[in-house]
Design a protein around this nucleic acid. Structure first.
Length: 106
DNA sequence: CGAATGACCAAGC
DNA sequence: GGCTTGGCCATTC
C-alpha cells in the first residue's frame, strides 16, 4: 500500500507480539519503539483493543509492569492467570518485575 | 477538517 | 507516594 498509515501497523504489532515467547512480557512503549513509534504507545493500546484471538495480548503490559486491561471486564484476572500459567510471578503490588520478565527482540 | 477518545508515558505537584 | 497535566499519534464521529 502506498499509504503507510494503514492497519499495517496493527498487523506489525500483532506479529511482533506473537514472537514474544511464553514466560516473557513486553511494554506498550517497547512495542511502539520497536516498530518505529517511540511515542506511539497509545497506538499499541488501540491495536490491543482490536487484537485478534491469535495474539497473546496477555503478554503486553504497561511500562510499570502492571496490567492495563481496562475495557475487558475481568480481563485483569484473566491476564494474570494466563501469565502465572506461563511461569511469571507477580509482586505483592500485583505488578511484574520487568527487570526479569521484560523480553527484548533478539 | 476539527474535536474527542484511548489496554500509554513521563514529569509535576 | 498518589493524583493531575501535558504530549504523542492514530482512529472515530
Amino acid at each position: 500500500m502506498t499509504s503507510p498509515t494503514n492497519k499495517d501497523f496493527f498487523q506489525r504489532v500483532y506479529n511482533w507480539v506473537s514472537q514474544v515467547p511464553a514466560g516473557r512480557v513486553v511494554t506498550y512503549g517497547q512495542i511502539a519503539a520497536a516498530l518505529g513509534h517511540p511515542r506511539g504507545a497509545r497506538l499499541v493500546g488501540w491495536a490491543m483493543r482490536v487484537c485478534p484471538d491469535d495474539v497473546p495480548w496477555h503478554r503486553v503490559i504497561n511500562a510499570r509492569g502492571a496490567l492495563s486491561t481496562r475495557p475487558l471486564p475481568g480481563g485483569f484476572h484473566l491476564q494474570r492467570a494466563l501469565l502465572e500459567d506461563e511461569g511469571i510471578q507477580f509482586e505483592s503490588d500485583g505488578r511484574i518485575d520487568l527487570r526479569i520478565y521484560r523480553w527484548s527482540e533478539q
